[in-house]
Design a protein around this nucleic acid. Sequence first.
DNA 1: CTGTAAAGATAGTGATACTATCTTAATAAA
DNA 2: TTTATTAAGATAGTATCACTATCTTTACAG
Lengths: 226, 226
Amino acid sequence: MDIHVQIKMNEKLFLRDPEQSELGKKIIQNSILLIYKNGFEAFTFKKLALDIGSTEAGIYRYFENKHRLLIYLTAWYWSWLEYQVTFQTNNIQDPVVKLKMIIDLLATTVEDDIRTSYVDESLLHQIIITEGTKAYLTKRVSEDNKDHLFKPYKDLCAIIGKMILECNPHYKYPKSLASTIIEMAHFQNFFMTNLPSLTDFGENKDESEIVRFLEDLVFSSLHVVH
Amino acid sequence: MDIHVQIKMNEKLFLRDPEQSELGKKIIQNSILLIYKNGFEAFTFKKLALDIGSTEAGIYRYFENKHRLLIYLTAWYWSWLEYQVTFQTNNIQDPVVKLKMIIDLLATTVEDDIRTSYVDESLLHQIIITEGTKAYLTKRVSEDNKDHLFKPYKDLCAIIGKMILECNPHYKYPKSLASTIIEMAHFQNFFMTNLPSLTDFGENKDESEIVRFLEDLVFSSLHVVH
DNA sequence: CTGTAAAGATAGTGATACTATCTTAATAAA
DNA sequence: TTTATTAAGATAGTATCACTATCTTTACAG
């Protein structure tokens, strides 16, 4: 069985759909490599074009600018993660177990999903940790939001919020707790690696400790034993 | 009594101390206005120079580049907030009350401190919400950290971590909970304003609800009634 | 055989992120 | 009073960035 997972992206995210051509796929694949390696600030379309043996103008036919490409990558990641969450929590009845599964998916190193040929999820995960928030921390956030560019992120947040309410229907802040889990899964990881004194995981640098922290945070808030 | 609060900044944050000259103070004052207005991405030394009637080269004598200036502003803000925390929690014995005070200081709109003449803390607070994380979410974070550029942030985090342990000496993640409170005080505020569906405060857009969320989060985790 | 569209090739523009140098102004030491 | 020092203004210059425009080639579909 040779399954390909394809994620349908909002058309406003690009000028020309990168999934529909070889050049488009190369843009995605190599932008991930380049941003992972040098960071988003140092990333330019010129360098990317050089890497894939195309031209700057060629890349501008797919994406308006590099910020739009970043939004595309984050949107792709959150869509893929929602798919993972749906898949992995399928057939699990207990919402507490489901929520633990989600925390694990958020906070644990992602393995490359071979069914998505040109996206290396493990690199993309690292990009999201360091650059993900920059997609929305801008002056343009409201306009971009009107174009539904952050829908995958908001969808995932809504799913987690629902799961939280399933664990405790009386909890008052399901959406805020959901966005807290998502962001902290990444921030605590970044801190652990780069600014360890901001965490309690400096010694071992072990992701499973982040998972335990988040579980403790969530289930204490929900007054649920886990 | 005419008290001036001056914050001693790490010398690596600048090339020439902006607090020691009129031009330096203008750079700080107007960079805050400009970043507040247009965001950090659109901010350039050229525009700033034009605003204050100086030259680009003049500003480069104070700061290596605009990223360093952002780090300076964030460091200044965290130092000032640590001072606020120390001041406001002085003479309070109960660590729970202290912690509530800190959450309030973190999550509530800051008023301009008239004792700091050329820094508008309320604008700076807004800048920190949107741009603050960009100071450290870079490829250079480790080098910058070695130069102790993030010390004020880490100091504040350590203070909050201590306070958390005072509330519950058995709690296992004081530092991670501290950094979570700090970041979420800002993120929930940003979400509330710009992406309200990620929070439970969309209706009223009231900061006091963020405070209640954070208090619930913290004191549930610490198993302390508040 | 022709029309269409993607992509390559090339050029150009204005802004950005600096660096360099020279001059002037202010102040402080000799 | 002269001289040395330093900050700041004035001006210029460069490489890169972030695009935009146009023209040609290639591919493939009708």
